[in-house]
Design a protein around this nucleic acid. Structure first.
Length: 601
DNA sequence: TTAGGGTTAG
């Protein structure tokens, strides 16, 4: 309907044109104006024109007005909402616009609320309704609502829409329903790059990195979709988590063949992959060849060097970064302080602590406090470390107290060790190794009564260690071993190799250290258990399947026990192999019977 | 006649 005031604007008319034709041209002009809007001010002007000419009554004009206000980055959902409320009978398009607008604005509850309103008013949904709606469910982790919406999708017959399917894969994957995610993926007729990307992300977000790499290979076999650079970044991250060097190298090769120039993110991911797979030299080489670096590239390399025990180089690189004019942040400072701590550089570490706060204006987080406790404690300054914890303006957490406890264990300070353990108990720590450390300290001090009390406490609390595992890659496939594992098809050979290794170790003077075995079993049983720790099984498997002299790389989820450490040192000497073991944030390079951590870890 | 999904580093 056209307002009468518009009909009186005759000065726009050329003699030969009818008022209707001119109005249509004017409407087109307003729509063009809308399309060209780059900011909210220009939008207000376009809105004013539309109102002036009375075009708001045209549903097409109103919906364009709504979409232009709701969807671009400069848009405003409050403004869009006021327009929406003025539309007399909003239809599917208008509702879809509001659902998407709120989802884009991270106002996920409102997005779902608009859908409910849509259902209440009996407005029909279409295939455009669901992708944004499912995205809102994903963000809210609203799996129940998501499943109800999935039901509606099936009822309305939109389950074969590619965009809807991809959104379902993503929602189920991110909400931890990996089986449902796979079910949608497998039922799809046609898959595009986004489908593959979503299913791989579903696996990586569930920690199923191996499966994600398998999917990448499957995708390559189909040759229907060419992976984008971003997907390589995700896959390299999976390799980093797994310590899968062969696969990472394979990806590097594919990247070089398919892209003339790699972007900085890909280069940084490659550097990170090499670091996490134990190839620090290769990572350094890549890093040096990267001409234009940013704080991420430096951060990866600095933390990498610190993780590999090359603290001085890490600190040199930090200076280089500052000289380049790059501003350090809190994450980089964690690596810098870690480097100082690992190398016993107490003065330097404390200087960096001050520079971080006063020169770079970074407020210390709990991680930084933890680094300082580790730094001071590792150097044997246990009173100072305790004093530092007591003066912290934030509540010390279990990691802080555990750092102090480890230092007490290394420097045999029972008094402060007891304080640290009590604090851990007060924090309700469920980590059995805390009490175990204290029991060792009591045993060393010959305090048998206290030792008995701690042992009883350990037994009463029924504390369970997180199951440990070791990963090892052979021919681009990652194998996972858990303690006492007999599930591998080559289990017999693996245990035969273990037997051989034990026999050789006897000549090296190795004797089993059962002190960290928590189970209430006799000494012989403990020794049997020790033999099949996951790291030993992984080494055995690697010795069977890799050529002489080739380094063995293992990635673990937990800190290794003392016995595995001693055992691996000797094996590296006996078999002439470098064995590189990655724990969560540290590498051990075992070579010729010694370890890079100098036995403090 | 308008529009929808995934993936990018420490």
């Amino acid at each position: 309907m056209i307002g009468t005031s518009v009909l009186h604007q005759t000065h726009f008319l050329l003699p030969s044109e009818s008022p209707q034709v001119n109005l249509r041209l004017k409407e087109q002009e307003c729509l063009t104006l809308l399309r060209r809007c780059m900011n909210i001010e220009e939008f207000r002007q376009a809105h004013a024109q539309i109102l002036r000419w009375g075009f708001f009554c045209s549903s097409f004009c109103a919906s364009n007005l709504l979409a232009t206000c709701a969807l671009p980055d400069w848009g405003s959902m409050d403004y869009a909402s006021s327009i929406f409320q003025q539309i007399e009978e909003p239809g599917t398009f208008e509702f879809n616009t509001m659902i998407k607008g709120y989802a884009k604005d991270f106002n996920m509850e409102k997005s779902l609320f608009v859908y409910c309103e849509m259902l209440e008013k009996g407005v029909q949904s279409d295939n455009f309704t669901f992708p944004s709606l499912l995205k809102a469910c994903t963000w809210l982790n609203a799996i129940k609502e998501g499943m109800q919406i999935h039901g509606n999708i099936i009822k309305l017959g939109f389950e074969s829409d590619l965009y809807v399917q991809n959104s379902l894969i993503n929602m189920y994957g991110k909400c931890g329903e990996i089986k449902l995610s796979c079910a949608v993926f497998e039922q799809m007729g046609q898959k595009d790059a986004a489908s593959w990307s979503a299913i791989m992300a579903a696996h990586t977000s569930s920690g199923m990195w191996s499966e994600s790499l398998q999917l990448f290979e499957e995708m390559g076999h189909g040759r229907s979709c060419r992976p984008e650079e971003s997907l390589y970044v995700s896959m390299l991250s999976a390799c980093s988590h797994l310590g899968a060097l062969d696969f990472g190298r394979f990806l590097h090769g594919v990247l070089l063949r398919n892209f003339s120039e790699l972007n900085l993110t890909v280069k940084t991911s490659l550097t990170d992959m090499y670091i996490n797979c134990g190839c620090v030299e290769k990572a350094l080489c890549l890093f040096r060849r990267t001409t234009k670096k940013n704080k991420f590239s430096y951060s990866v390399m600095i933390s990498g060097l610190a993780m590999h025990g090359r603290s001085k180089e890490a600190l040199e690189l930090f200076s280089e970064m500052l000289l380049e004019g790059l501003q350090p942040d809190d994450v980089i400072y964690v690596s810098v302080l870690t480097a100082c701590s690992r190398d016993g550089l107490v003065d330097e570490g404390l200087q960096f602590w001050n520079r971080m706060k006063f020169e770079h204006g970074i407020e210390p987080t709990i991680q930084h406090y933890c680094c300082i406790v580790d730094l001071v404690g590792r150097a044997g300054m246990l009173d100072e470390a305790l004093e530092f914890i007591r003066s912290m303006p934030i509540q010390p957490n279990d990691v802080v107290w555990r750092s102090l406890l480890s230092a007490c264990k290394a420097h045999h300070n029972l008094k402060i060790g007891e304080i640290a353990t009590k604090s851990l108990v007060r924090l309700n720590s469920r980590n059995p190794s805390d009490l175990l450390i204290l029991s060792h300290m009591y045993a060393r001090a010959k305090k048998w009564e206290d030792l008995a009390k701690v042992r009883t406490e350990l037994a009463c609390k029924h504390l369970h260690q997180t199951p440990g595992y070791s990963l090892v890659e052979v021919k681009r496939k990652v194998y996972r071993f858990v303690s006492q594992d007999k599930s591998h098809p080559e289990s017999e050979d693996i245990y035969e190799m273990i037997h051989q290794m034990e026999w050789q170790l006897k000549f090296e003077g190795y004797s089993a250290d059962t002190s960290e075995i928590l189970l209430d079993v006799d000494e012989e049983e403990k020794k049997q258990r020790l033999k099949s720790h996951s790291q030993k099984l992984a080494i055995s498997f690697a010795l069977i399947h890799t050529a002489e002299g080739v380094p063995i790389r293992i990635a673990r989820n937990l800190r290794m026990c003392n016995d595995c450490h001693t055992y691996t040192k000797s094996i590296s000497k006996i078999y002439g192999r470098e064995i590189i073991v990655r724990e969560r944030n540290r590498f051990h390079h075992f070579k010729d019977g010694a370890c890079s951590c100098r036995d403090y870890w």
